[in-house]
């Protein structure tokens, strides 16, 4: 019950610590030349991605309380701890597995845009539904941060979330936030810095409970892929996409471009 309070305290401590201070943030607006890292903001619709984007870049993406407000990709820059970041605000998406056109932009960027860190913004009051996308993203990347937004609404609804447990379950940093009140930005930036520079190593959760029939098929195919492409890290995920008939992956494979996937997968560990 008191996790949120506990974390409030953590946040306060953080404000006082020398390195991770919001004062080290310089908003760069649309100026993002010579960036060191690319950060993507992904998540379900209406979870506050654009609000966080505006907070960090000083830009003025439209926000609104309805799913689907952002329909195009937006980019901006900021400097934090002497690193230049390019931040990409994506349209909200419920899933990476669909082929729906409106979600193409987000899907393509997460898969092929090679972000160095993906910030997954979730609505803390609808955690279970949001975890669908989170678990899917964790299948492809191991550099992710969970921004647990809308904590004020969680409190208003008399709910609480065990942050430590959640971080343990997912294997990535979890940051409680109230983006509209600009709360939690420090800690988010701290983790962006640590994860992008490799100081913090994520151990993202991978799906365990596939049905036996599917598991067998995925394993067989993934073994076959591994034989021919020993350097491809997350072959299980590629196998799953092939079994779904995902044309982008089939094309990438046929044209030999599958290597393009490697950078964004380069740190992924193969769960056996």
């Amino acid at each position: 019950m008191n996790n949120w309070n506990l974390n409030n305290k953590q946040m306060e401590q953080c404000v006082n610590c020398p390195v991770h201070n919001i004062d080290n943030l310089v908003k760069l607006g649309i100026n993002m030349s010579n960036f060191d890292y690319v950060i993507a903001l992904a998540g379900n619709p209406n979870t506050g991605k654009s609000t966080i984007f505006n907070n960090l870049t000083g830009l003025k993406q439209h926000t609104g309380n309805w799913p689907g407000k952002t329909v195009a990709r937006a980019e901006g820059g900021f400097v934090y701890n002497n690193n230049n970041y390019k931040l990409v605000d994506l349209p909200g998406t419920y899933s990476l597995l669909s082929t729906s056109t409106d979600e193409d932009i987000a899907r393509n960027f997460i898969l092929f845009g090679k972000p160095d860190v993906t910030i997954i913004v979730v609505d803390s009051t609808r955690l279970e539904r949001n975890l669908n996308l989170v678990l899917q993203i964790l299948e492809i990347t191991d550099r992710a941060i969970l921004a647990l937004n809308l904590m004020d609404e969680l409190k208003r609804n008399n709910m609480s979330i065990d942050l430590r447990q959640l971080a343990r379950e997912l294997g990535i940093p979890v940051v409680p936030m109230e983006a509209r009140q600009k709360k939690g930005m420090d800690e988010l930036l701290k983790y962006v810095d640590e994860v992008s520079s490799g100081k913090f190593i994520c151990k993202p959760r991978r799906l365990k409970s596939l049905s036996p029939k599917i598991d067998n098929a995925v394993n067989e195919l993934s073994k076959k892929i591994k034989e021919q492409l020993p350097n491809l890290p997350n072959t299980r995920w590629v196998a799953m996409r092939l079994l779904e008939g995902d044309q982008q992956i089939i094309d990438a494979l046929n044209s030999g471009e599958i290597g393009n996937l490697e950078p964004s997968l380069k740190h992924a560990e193969e769960p056996v």
């Binding site: 899933s95 597995l97 279970e128 539904r129 975890l131 669908n132 989170v134 678990l135 899917q136 959760r205 799906l207 365990k208 409970s209 596939l210 049905s211 599917i214 799953m240 779904e244």
Partner: peptide
């Protein structure tokens, strides 16, 4: 089936 598995973990 995949989505079902994901949701059961979620």
């Amino acid at each position: 089936s995949i989505i079902e598995s994901i949701y059961s973990e979620a």
